[in-house]
């Protein structure tokens, strides 16, 4: 919880004046940033999905850190406890900006942001990736049942050369501040990569109840339970010892 509150207090994405800094400037050249490409995919079906993030870039002499900022609507949630367990098992690094309810339906929840720190892919230089589990919430029944569409907007991608304290100036990208690592103990300057060919949103379809069936469902349920009740009542009455 402390971690979360800390995340809330430091997670401010504010543009900075990078050119005013005096420290040693390093990092890749402007042309390198054009090689950066990102993809977002949704894997699995039903209420339990996975968001797959992949960032490709030309090889660089120094390691590049990538942070994906994903805004999520109230229709889905991430389970902070599952994320903690995955962090131990697979090294997945995700930070949530607020406490997220695991049980509330969509109309009683609010959206949140996830900060996903991508990891280098084994044996593939120039590829950073993360697979993050996301779960669908139950939605209000709709007038004709079917499926409710949940739109997950395209993420923002932030990059940072690992060993640079100060980002190169004059780049056509915005400088923003965000937690340096998933430990969330310090704030670093990141370059927000713009103009990526990422779709505006990905869509999940989640089954919803059919509100038009309320009458038959209530009648059927009450009738069935009354029938079972009567059956049991008669049997207990006949065989009971009073």
């Amino acid at each position: 919880m402390l971690l979360l509150h800390f995340a809330l207090s430091v997670f401010r994405l504010t543009p900075c004046e990078a050119s005013q800094k005096d420290e040693v400037i390093c990092g890749p050249a402007s042309a390198w940033f054009e090689s950066v490409d990102m993809s977002v995919d949704v894997a699995k079906r039903g209420f339990h999905r996975e968001l797959l993030y992949e960032v490709h870039h030309d090889p660089t002499p120094q390691a590049i850190k990538a942070l994906v900022i994903q805004r999520l609507p109230s229709g889905v949630y991430m389970d902070q406890y599952q994320l903690a367990s995955l962090r131990e098992d697979t090294g997945l690094q995700v930070l949530l900006d607020s406490a997220v309810s695991l049980e509330d339906p969509a109309h009683m929840s609010s959206g949140f942001s996830a900060l996903v720190y991508l990891s280098p892919a084994d044996g593939l230089p120039g590829l950073l990736q993360a697979v993050v589990p996301v779960h669908g919430r139950y939605h209000r029944p709709s007038s004709s049942g079917g499926w409710e569409r949940v739109y997950i907007e395209g993420p923002r991608l932030l990059l940072r050369p690992e060993s640079c304290e100060t980002l190169p100036s004059g780049l056509p990208h915005r400088v923003v501040e965000a937690p340096c690592t998933v430990q969330n103990q310090s704030v670093c300057s990141w370059l927000e990569i713009q103009g990526l060919q990422v779709p505006d949103s990905v869509t999940l379809e989640l089954p919803v109840g059919d509100f038009s069936l309320t009458g038959p469902v209530c009648a059927g349920t009450i009738l069935a339970t009354l029938l079972c009740f009567a059956l049991l009542f008669r049997t207990i009455w006949t065989h009971g010892i009073f």
């Binding site: 079906r45 039903g46 209420f47 339990h48 379809e205 989640l206 919803v208 469902v217």
Partner: peptide, 14 residues
């Protein structure tokens, strides 16, 4: 099928 495949099987579950 509801939970892992996303089929609308509410009526069958009921």
């Amino acid at each position: 099928y509801l939970e892992f495949e996303g089929h609308n099987t509410f009526v069958y579950i009921w």
